[in-house]
Amino acid sequence: MADKPERDIDEDLVRQLAKLLDETGLTEIEYGRDGWHVRVSGRTQQVATIDPAPAQSGGDTQATPDDSVDVDLTNAVTSPMVGVVFTSSDPETPPFIKVGDQVEEGQTLLLIEAMKVFNPITATKAGKVVQILITNGAPVEFGEPLLILE
């Protein structure tokens, strides 16, 4: 991934937990510290769950940042389509926005690729980028919060 937003997942930690999961044969590990925690669950467990929260597509293990991390989604910009999100127009150029940026109405924030078409996601109002909730190249669902703009 080209960039690392502030609230990104500690990949090494997740990998370590995932490895533990395989070694121990557990279906789920929850690990927390200093007001945050991460739950890693294996796919077999995912089958049985009837959690109404939309499951994410991905690899064999999934890291789910717990909702108790409390993200206020009132000012979230949500995805208007299912697709793959890109934070810059190509890998060489810097991201369209970073946390702390002041953006104008109509400014491009991200791109979402669907059916090989890159759709710019633009700011519907001027504001400050408070938080970026996705990483470059991540698949997103319709309605998924992408970033917080206040």
Binding site: R43, Q46, V47, I50, D51, P52, P54, A55, Q56, S57, M81, V82, P139, E141, F142, G143, E144
Partner: peptide
């Protein structure tokens, strides 16, 4: 599924689910 079907049984039973629209 659409946003209206986030709690639908087919979504709850599937291995993976993806919200595709309103």
């Amino acid at each position: 599924h659409s946003t209206a079907d986030a709690d639908a049984m087919h979504v709850r039973l599937a291995e993976e689910s993806i919200c595709i629209g309103p």
